Simulated scan of single mutants.
Amino acid sequence: MKKEHRNAHPYVGMWVTADGHIRHELLPNGRYDEARGNRKSAYQGSYTMKGDHIEYVDDTGFTADGDFIDGVLYHAGMVLNREEHREGDQK
C-alpha cells in the first residue's frame, strides 16, 4: 500500500461540525469529500492550500474558501474541528 499521508499537508484528515452533520475529509491527493447528514459524498472536488488558507473547487465548478485558525477550520459559515479517532472506535 502506498503511504500518501507521509508527506501530506498537516491539515489532511477529517473535519467535523460539533453536531456531526457536516463531515469534511481533506485527502492527501488534493481532493476533498464532504458528507452532509446521511448523504455521503454530497460534495467532492479539489483544494489548494496557501499557509492556513484553503481554496475549494467542487466538481461542478462551485468555489469556496476557508481558514484554519488555532486548529479550527472556518469554512462557509461553518466551524469544523479535526476528528480524533480513539483506540477502540469503530468506523
Rank of each mutant, 00 (worst) to 15 (best):
Y74V: 01
Q44M: 14
P28A: 08
G37E: 05
E87Y: 12
K40F: 13
H5P: 03
H85Y: 08
K40I: 10
I22W: 04
G51Q: 03
K91H: 10
K2G: 12
D19W: 10
E55G: 04
R39A: 06
K2Y: 11
T60D: 13
D65L: 11
A8C: 09
R36S: 14
H5G: 09
E25G: 05
G77H: 11
H75K: 03
Q90F: 05
S46Q: 09
H85C: 02
N81H: 11
R86C: 07
N29V: 01
F62A: 15
K2V: 12
K40Y: 11
V72G: 00
T17M: 10
R31H: 15
A8M: 09
V72I: 00
H9I: 05
A64E: 11
G61M: 05
V72N: 00
A18Y: 08
D19P: 06
D19A: 12
V16K: 11
A8R: 06
Y74H: 10
K2D: 14
K91V: 02
N7Y: 10
Y43G: 09
H9S: 15
T60F: 11
H85M: 06
R82S: 06
T48R: 15
E84W: 03
L80N: 01
H53C: 02
I54C: 07
A35E: 04
P10Q: 12
V12R: 09
Q90T: 08
L73F: 03
W15L: 07
N81E: 07
E34Y: 11
I22K: 03
G51S: 03
E87K: 12
L73G: 00
L26Y: 08
S46A: 06
G66R: 00
D33K: 14
I69E: 11
G37S: 10
F68K: 01
V72T: 00
Y47G: 03
G51C: 04
P10S: 08
L26A: 07
D52I: 00
N38W: 12
I22Q: 04
Y11H: 13
T17H: 12
E4Y: 07
T48P: 07
R39K: 13
E87W: 11
I54L: 15
N81S: 10
A76G: 04
G77C: 11
H21Q: 13
K40L: 14
E34K: 14
Y32Q: 06
P10D: 07
A64N: 15
M49P: 03
H85W: 06
L73V: 02
L27N: 15
K91A: 03
V72F: 01
D59H: 06
E55Y: 08
D70Y: 09
M78I: 07
K40Q: 13
Y43S: 14
E55C: 03
G45R: 02
L73M: 06
F68Y: 01
T60P: 02
K3I: 11
G77I: 08
K3D: 15
I22N: 08
M49Q: 04
M49L: 15
M14W: 03
R6C: 08
Y56V: 01
Y56P: 00
W15D: 06
Q44N: 12
D59L: 03
E25W: 06
R86P: 02
S46Y: 02
V16C: 09
M49E: 05
G71F: 04
D89L: 02
D33F: 10
D70H: 12
G45S: 06
G61Y: 05
Q90H: 12
H24Y: 15
L73R: 00
E83T: 04
V12C: 14
G37C: 10
T60K: 13
G20Y: 14
M49W: 10
P10G: 08
L73K: 00
L26H: 04
